[in-house]
Design a protein around this nucleic acid. Structure first.
Lengths: 112, 112
DNA sequence: ATCGAAGTTCGACATTCATCGAATAAGTGT
DNA sequence: ACACTTATTCGATGAATGTCGAACTTCGAT
């Protein structure tokens, strides 16, 4: 059995399993919102390249929260872990919601 | 100076002061979501009449969170406190967001 | 005046949460 | 082999959170 993953397997919830409260909670943190917002404008990005100012271990924690909430997808590539927004799946389950939240974030830059 | 309020004055943030993260956090609790969802189908309702199963003091706490986040408006009437959803103001600040969240809640009744 | 109804405030409590540093693991390149 | 990069896991810590019961306030009714 091939085991490519770094440590624990990367678990992603199925689209139908994505919980609204988990998503809202995940989005209610500024650091995580920055991650999601950054991903909304590009297909993929390595963990260490996000414009956030927290310790690596803290960042790992936020990725885990986002992944388990179903907001992001992560895959291994060589030495890095590439993260993508599950935009289509999110929109299928909660139509228009992520877009509206991201638009709200864009509209209120004073809150940063 | 007339002082009609029960105890402390009911403070409501101005529309421009409504913070996205406060709103998302407020909505990430099932009890508070139930309150918001209930209010979305009627203009006003007294505190004690919501279909939630928590102690009165807990309910008070949730109303405070929702009020300070800018999601609801409360006014005194006689012995009761009437609560309304600030739907129009929310939609003006974050267009489509509340509607999308409420629709998402409606779409996923299995999560209750 | 007294009682009951409606809500709030306060204090306590257990849980969750965001954060960090140190140690660890896996892959790349020399 | 060895060092370096990337990212995670673990343990700790302080703050925030949801919950409750008890005491209190305000108003309406008897």
């Amino acid at each position: 059995m091939a085991r490519t993953s770094r440590r624990a397997a990367l678990t992603h919830p199925e689209p139908e399993e994505i919980d609204l409260f988990d998503v809202l909670h995940a989005l209610s943190d500024p650091t995580r919102m920055t991650i999601v917002h950054t991903l909304s404008t590009e297909p993929e990005r390595a963990c260490g390249t996000f414009p956030v100012d927290v310790a690596p271990s803290t960042l790992s924690h936020h990725f885990k929260v986002l992944r388990e909430a179903g907001l992001i997808h992560q895959r291994e590539e060589a030495n890095r872990r590439l993260t993508a927004l599950r935009a289509a799946e999110l929109d299928a389950r909660f139509p228009g919601m992520l877009a509206a939240v991201l638009a709200a974030y864009d509209r209120t830059p004073e809150a940063r």
